[in-house]
């Protein structure tokens, strides 16, 4: 079983909301330098899904990250969790794209790898919350796909996937190779072990440039993208909270109830 997991490096989505800043001119979001980037949390669930299959029946897991300014400590996390190889698509040309250019470059990298049974992505990357790249890879490679997986099993050349829906789940059976996007209902990704971290330190990632995966400049960055970001801003919060006090917690609770009654909220 050869598996690929696509893992994006993103700014930490769980940093305190007050620390997010928007640079309206550059149309970027920044955090204070003290807060390190992370692997997109949903991609960690995707790594976990692949690891569970590897645990059950063996196989090889290749992680791929596309971007600029990739930090070894960050992008090596899938290796320290148990993935076998790491490929970095790192080049300035990959920087200013959109879901199209990203999916295209990842698809071409997967093609170059060849012989791949399962491709895992996160349900959505926590920066732009798009939820498109996994399905884009599937469409570009002409593969079947399932989104929002909470359980993935492989038997007899088929994947059996439980997909989260608004009111429950559905079971989907699909032929391999296939693309699967993973949701948090899968269950917590494992922590890297000390042994895993040591092994990851020693492993050198493979770096591929656009030419290595036969991606033309016209399919990259500004030339290749089909969506234009015209504005980025932070909505203003009115936010004035009345803190209801009391001698004891019980009194505070009672006076909250009265206030809500007065304001006709109850």
């Amino acid at each position: 079983m050869n598996m690929v997991v696509c893992c994006k490096q993103v700014i930490d989505p769980e940093a305190p909301p007050a620390s997010f800043r928007v640079d309206a001119a550059k149309k970027t979001v920044t955090l204070p330098p003290s807060i390190s980037p992370v692997i997109d949390p949903y991609a960690e669930y995707a790594v976990e899904a692949a690891l569970r299959i590897k645990d059950a029946q063996g196989g090889k897991i290749t992680a791929i990250s596309l971007g600029t300014g990739l930090l070894p400590d960050v992008v090596k996390k899938p290796l320290s969790m148990g993935a076998d190889e790491l490929i970095l698509l790192e080049d300035e040309a990959f920087g200013t794209g959109d879901s199209w250019t990203t999916a295209y470059a990842l698809a071409m990298a997967i093609k170059r790898l060849g012989d791949c049974d399962l491709i895992f992505c996160g349900r959505q990357a926590s920066d732009w919350d798009a939820g498109q790249v996994g399905l884009g890879i599937a469409e570009i490679l002409g593969l079947p796909s399932v989104t929002l997986a909470r359980k993935v099993e492989v038997a007899d050349g088929k994947a059996r996937v439980e997909r989260v829906t608004d009111d429950g789940y559905e079971v989907i059976s699909l032929s391999l190779p296939a693309v699967i996007t993973v949701s948090n209902e899968l269950g917590e990704p494992r922590y890297p072990t000390i042994k895993g971290i040591m092994a990851a330190k020693k492993k050198e990632p493979t770096v591929w440039k656009p030419a290595d995966i036969r991606v033309e400049p016209a399919q990259l960055g500004e030339a290749g993208r089909r969506a234009e970001l015209v504005k980025l801003f932070q909505p203003v919060r009115e936010g004035s909270c009345e803190i209801v006090d009391g001698e004891t917690p019980e009194e505070a609770a009672a006076s909250l109830a009265l206030k809500l009654r007065e304001a006709k909220i109850l």
Partner: peptide, 29 residues
């Protein structure tokens, strides 16, 4: 951060606050 988004808030342990709030709401209703 929730207090930046809320109109009303009580600071404290919910285990003490919620039963009293529920009791008072029951009474008011």
């Amino acid at each position: 951060n929730i207090f930046r988004e809320a109109s009303y808030g009580v600071v404290g342990d919910w285990k003490k606050i919620l039963p009293a709030l529920t009791a008072k709401i029951k009474e008011l209703m």
